[in-house]
Amino acid sequence: ATVGSICDLNLKIPEINSSDMSAHVTSPSGRVTEAEIVPMGKNSHCVRFVPQEMGVHTVSVKYRGQHVTGSPFQFTVG
């Protein structure tokens, strides 16, 4: 992922509605921003955001307030 470019995290989660999901990204400096959740068809969801700084980011994806399997996810920008 690169700073200022759209970053997509694709998840396969069976039998949940994306409208019941939420996602937030925490940057290396601790800034928390909301991420967009895009339905991608049956059981597939895309978490979309634009990182604003380099370094390790943490993406928390929740369904009805509970982390989904594997969340929070970490990835490096830059």
Rank of each mutant, 00 (worst) to 15 (best):
V61Q: 02
S5K: 12
A1V: 06
T2G: 04
R64L: 11
S44R: 13
S5T: 10
V47W: 00
I13F: 01
K42V: 07
C7E: 00
S19P: 05
V38A: 12
R31E: 12
V32I: 14
G4T: 01
R48F: 00
V38G: 08
P14V: 04
T33K: 06
C46V: 07
M40I: 06
V32Q: 12
G41M: 06
V77S: 07
T58N: 14
A23L: 00
G55V: 00
K12H: 07
T69H: 05
I13M: 02
P14H: 06
V59I: 13
V3P: 02
Q66F: 03
R31M: 08
T69K: 11
K12R: 08
P51H: 05
T26K: 09
D8N: 12
Q52V: 09
Q66D: 12
R48A: 02
V50G: 02
F73C: 01
S71V: 03
T2Q: 09
G70S: 14
M40R: 15
Q74E: 06
V68R: 02
S22F: 08
I16K: 06
V32F: 11
V3W: 03
G55P: 00
K42T: 09
V68I: 06
V61C: 05
T2A: 03
L11V: 13
V61N: 02
H45Y: 06
C46N: 15
E15H: 14
V47Y: 00
G30L: 07
I6Y: 09
I13C: 00
V77G: 04
I16G: 10
S19T: 03
C7G: 00
R31T: 13
Q52G: 13
A23T: 05
V3A: 02
H45M: 09
G41V: 08
Q66M: 10
H57G: 07
H24C: 11
S19F: 09
I6W: 09
R31Y: 14
E15T: 07
K42L: 06
H45S: 10
H45Q: 15
K62Q: 12
S44P: 06
G55Y: 04
R48I: 00
P14C: 03
Y63M: 13
Q66G: 13
E34T: 11
S18F: 05
R64V: 11
C7Y: 13
N17D: 10
E34W: 08
T2E: 08
R48T: 01
H45W: 00
A35P: 11
S5Q: 13
N43M: 07
Q66T: 12
N43F: 06
S29A: 02
K42D: 12
N43Y: 07
M54E: 15
V32T: 12
I13S: 02
V68A: 05
D8G: 13
A23W: 00
T2M: 06
Q52M: 14
S18Y: 04
K42C: 05
P14Y: 01
E15M: 08
S22T: 13
E53M: 13
V50T: 08
F73M: 02
T26S: 09
Q52T: 09
H57V: 13
G78I: 01
F49P: 02
F75G: 07
H24L: 09
R48D: 01
H57Y: 08
H67T: 07
R64T: 13
S44I: 01
S18I: 01
I16H: 10
V59H: 00
H67R: 07
R64M: 14
T69L: 05
A1Q: 04
P39L: 04
V56I: 11
T26W: 06
C46M: 02
S29T: 15
V32S: 09
S60M: 08
G78T: 05
Q52P: 14
T2S: 06
T33D: 12
C7P: 00
P39Y: 07
K62V: 13
E53Q: 09
G78N: 08
I16E: 03
F75C: 06
F75S: 15
G70Y: 05
V50R: 07
G70M: 10
K42G: 08
S5M: 07
P14F: 03
E34S: 11
E15I: 13
Q52I: 06
T26Y: 14
C7D: 00
A23Q: 04
T2I: 05
V47K: 00
S71A: 05
A1N: 15
K12S: 11
R31C: 10
G70N: 12
V77T: 04
S71D: 06
G70H: 10
V32D: 10
G4M: 03
V47N: 02
V59D: 00
V32N: 14
V47T: 02
V3R: 03
I16Y: 11
K12Q: 12
V59C: 02
S5R: 07
T69C: 09
R48G: 00
T33V: 10
M40C: 08
H57D: 02
P14K: 04
T58Q: 14
H57P: 01
H45T: 15
I16F: 02
A1D: 08
I13Q: 02
M54H: 15
S5H: 07
I13N: 04
G55W: 04
Q66K: 11
F75K: 15
S18D: 01
P39W: 02
N17L: 08
I6Q: 05
V32M: 11
V61D: 01
T69F: 04
S71C: 05
C46G: 09
V77M: 00
S44Y: 09
Q52A: 11
F49T: 13
Y63K: 11
M54Q: 10
N17G: 06
A1K: 12
R48L: 00
C7N: 00
G65N: 09
F73L: 02
F75E: 11
Q66Y: 05
V59T: 02
V68T: 09
G65S: 12
G65R: 10
T33F: 09
H57F: 14
V68W: 06
C46I: 07
H24K: 10
V59Y: 00
R31K: 14
I6R: 07
P72E: 06
K12E: 15
G70V: 11
V3Q: 05
P28R: 03
E53D: 15
C46Y: 03
V25R: 09
T26I: 12
M54D: 15
E34N: 08
R48S: 03
S5I: 02
E15S: 09
R64F: 12
V68P: 04
H67N: 10
H67E: 12
A1R: 04
G65K: 10
N43P: 14
S71R: 03
V59Q: 01
K12A: 06
I13T: 03
R31G: 14
H57C: 14
Q66R: 11
V61R: 01
G4S: 00
G41C: 07
G41H: 05
A23G: 11
M40G: 15
T69Y: 07
F49M: 05
T58C: 11
K12Y: 11
T2W: 05
V32E: 11
G65Q: 13
N17V: 05
R64K: 11
M21V: 14
G78A: 05
Y63V: 15
F73N: 01
